[in-house]
């Protein structure tokens, strides 16, 4: 057995030379046969896969797309009176209009107003041809998600930026990243590949909805009954009590958000 090992060692002298510095002391290596190589290759494999997983994989997973028109929110917010809701408004039936349609833009942009080449492009390519702009919606949820804006904005009094961030302060449209596999926006998973977040708007996964709902309206009764009030554990939820206005937190309400 040991002879075999030695033959192999000779065959790969070069490799040994190269990595000698990071290896354990020589005598140990001699004592214990091939252990040095084994640990070395383990580390190589380990490190390489970490680089692939954390660095290369996210780059490959998302494709980068540019918005058809570079949109300046700041200018628009200044020009309108009612903030976000001037363009992103609620319809009479309570539904949310989302990204404005051409009809709304045409109110001002019938003809080119300023000198921005983006506006020129907008007027020439879309307004003139009567074609809707194929905006890429950063916060577009998968089809199975039902989200009532009015319940959150009108009834829950939540600010737009809680979920959408300070998009109103942007002067340019950032790159839209699309998950090649699932086909939806990276904003849902979040920029951070580990899925960590600092701000409420960094991620838009189901857990983030749940987190907010739990924080706002959970009734921490069960916790008192439990023997371990462990602070880092999420707060438990209770079945709805009768007459209070409450945020939807029940586990029994999946289809409130899913269709």
């Amino acid at each position: 057995m040991s002879t075999l090992d030695e033959k192999a060692k000779e065959a790969s002298t070069e490799a040994v030379d190269e990595v000698e510095t990071v290896l354990p002391p020589k005598e140990k290596k001699q004592d214990n046969g091939p252990w040095g190589y084994i640990i070395l290759f383990f580390i190589i494999g380990f490190a390489a896969s970490l680089v692939i997983g954390w660095g290369i994989f996210p780059k490959l997973l998302y494709s980068q797309k540019k918005q058809p028109i570079d949109f300046n929110h700041v200018i628009h917010v200044e020009a309108v009176e009612e903030g976000c809701e001037s363009c992103h408004f609620f319809r009479e039936d309570g539904s949310f209009s989302g990204v404005p349609k051409l009809v709304q833009c045409v109110d001002c942009h019938e003809e080119v107003m300023g000198e921005d080449p983006n506006e020129v492009k907008f007027v020439e390519e879309y307004v003139a041809k009567g074609q809707e702009v194929p905006w890429l919606v950063y916060s577009k949820q998968p089809d199975c998600v039902f989200f009532s804006h009015i319940a959150h904005v009108k009834m829950g009094k939540i600010e737009c930026d809680t979920c959408h961030g300070h998009i109103g302060e942007s002067t340019h449209s950032r790159v839209y990243e699309e998950n090649r596999f699932t086909g939806y926006s990276r904003d849902i998973w979040g920029k951070n590949i580990a899925g960590l977040k600092k701000n409420t708007w960094d991620r838009m996964k189901m857990d983030d909805c749940a987190e907010c709902h739990a924080e706002n309206k959970a009734v921490p009764k069960t916790v008192e009954r439990l023997p371990w009030p462990i602070s880092w554990m999420p707060r438990p939820y209770e079945k709805p009590t009768s007459s209070q206005v409450r945020t939807q937190i029940d586990k029994d309400a999946c289809f409130v958000c899913h269709k």
Binding site: G94, S95, S148, A151, M155
Partner: peptide, 14 residues
């Protein structure tokens, strides 16, 4: 038709 319940709710909220 639970979605109708939700749409009705939306309208009521409005």
């Amino acid at each position: 038709c639970f979605h109708r319940y939700q749409l009705a709710k939306n309208k009521a909220y409005a």
